[in-house]
Design a binder for these strands. Structure first.
Length: 416
RNA sequence: CGGGGUGUGGUGUAACGGUAGCAUACUUGCUUUGGGAGCAUGCAGUCCGGGUUCAAAUCCCGGCACCCCGACCA
């Protein structure tokens, strides 16, 4: 894409009402637009990143047998009443609205109920399971206090997968598979080194533990105790001597850290299947409720966490796998000049090879282009100018490195 | 939801109750061209509703919005 075509602009200053680093940088660089507190639009650059994160998650979910679907935002209160989660006194962050006829309607904040209800039409026998369904869908949560930029929003895109198993053992097997897939996902998006599977409290679903995936960051809201050798952590909420003993962890190996919850997985047992009548008949003709699990990742939060943890003082530093473009090609020559024509040639060739490139063809000054490039954070910066032309090459600089190197055209294309 | 704070051009900021100014961005022109250029030019603003006052960005009341701390976070 030519940068002159991109409609977003960068800014030197962040809006005064944004304090979090992720929102400041993402707004300055033109990735997102704040609509209101906790509600952000994704602009072209931001959407590119979001889609890459989505695709990585999709690949890993498909790899463990997930089937993608898409459920509705508008929700029928009736099925939520069956699990007692319609009442505002029970679930306090509902957005609710009404049909023109006057009847109540919910705006979905999660999808255990609707999916369980859907599957009543598709699960009858033990032969119909195990079954794993997931979606990328917008959730609405009426948070009393939105904060931390895109990290805790009122409207956000979430991958939610639900597992349907014939028994506890079968459920556990998938649960562990999914945990492994999650670690892969966080690794692929560039958060692997900072992200820990973390033992947490059971929430309101079960009495046992659940698992969170926590990324170390001073911007985090959670406090966890990390065993860096064993690559595991314990959330403060379950940090007791007894629990540590159960988990086989020693207090002296644990370090207290602040962290961001980038994903979670938890057992649902038969809470929803029982309440909504999702049962199956086993080999012996006996009816039992389906054993369920739930597995979530907030895409915006992952994106925000990457900005929080990997940026530097000049701007964002995108890991290659999720960067909006792989190459930021900068022409310093005037339109029509020899170096500009050469830059256009490189641009065309990169595109022909299927390499995503943002071509800064704007008639602006070098300093501004460099500053923008660092702010936007594309992994590889390539400069074409009279100087590089004289040297018969291209100036290549990685966003993570300080120094630039002159490459010949051949060596440059060999990078990909 | 409790406590605190703040609302001024697109963005960042200034103005004792007395002419709303600066910077940036944007328009146009000339110069400049490897680290957010210079000169000139044009465009653009006091959150909303009341009140006090000769006079309100400024003081008072109400509302709304945003930020922070806490609580909450299926």
């Amino acid at each position: 894409m030519k940068q002159s075509f991109l409609f977003t602009k960068t800014r030197k200053e962040a809006p005064k009402d944004e304090v979090s680093k992720n929102a400041q940088l993402l707004i300055r660089a033109g990735f997102i637009h704040k609509e209101m507190a906790g509600v952000y639009s994704y602009l072209p650059l931001g959407l590119r990143v979001l889609k890459k994160i989505e695709q990585i998650i999709r690949e890993e979910m498909n790899a463990i047998g997930g089937q993608e679907m898409l459920m509705t935002t508008l929700q029928d209160p009736a099925i939520w009443q069956k699990t007692n989660r319609w009442d505002d006194a029970v679930v306090d962050n509902w957005f609710k609205t009404k049909l023109a006829t006057g009847s109540d309607l919910g705006i979905a904040n999660t999808h255990e109920e609707p999916l369980t209800n859907i599957l009543r039409n598709h699960i009858n026998s033990y032969k119909d399971m195990p079954l794993y369904a997931y979606q990328f869908q917008t959730k609405f949560r009426n948070e009393l206090r939105a904060k931390s930029g895109i990290m805790r929003a009122r409207e956000f895109l979430m991958k939610d997968l639900y597992s349907f198993s014939r028994g506890e053992e079968e459920f556990r097997e998938f649960y562990e598979k999914c945990a492994a897939a999650y670690l892969k996902i966080f690794d692929r998006v560039g958060l692997g080194a900072l992200t820990y599977r973390t033992v947490a409290a059971g929430g309101s679903f079960t009495s046992g533990f659940t698992d969170e995936f926590q990324t170390l960051s001073t911007a985090g809201e959670d406090i966890i105790y990390v065993d860096k050798k064993k690559k595991i952590a314990v959330n403060k909420e379950v940090y007791t001597d007894e629990n540590l003993r159960k988990l086989g962890l020693k207090k002296e190996d644990l370090v207290e850290e602040k962290s961001i919850e980038v994903g979670n997985i938890f057992p649902l047992g038969t809470k929803y299947s029982s309440a909504l009548g999702l049962v199956f008949i086993d080999k012996d003709g006996v009816k039992s409720p389906v054993v369920m699990g739930s597995y979530g990742i907030g895409l915006g939060r992952v994106m925000g966490t990457i900005v929080e943890t990997l940026s530097d003082e000049k701007g964002i530093v995108w890991p290659e796998a999720i960067a909006p473009f792989k190459v930021h090609l900068i022409s310093l020559g005037e339109k029509g000049s020899a170096s500009f024509v050469y830059a256009e040639k490189i641009y065309t060739e990169l595109q022909q090879k299927g390499i995503e490139v943002l071509f800064d063809d704007r008639p602006t000054r070098a300093g501004e282009k460099f500053a923008d490039s660092e702010l936007i954070g594309i992994p590889i910066r390539v400069v074409v100018s009279d100087k590089t032309l004289e040297k018969n090459g291209l100036e290549v600089k990685r966003r993570t490195e300080e120094t630039a190197t002159i490459f010949t055209e051949t060596d440059f294309f060999a990078l990909f």
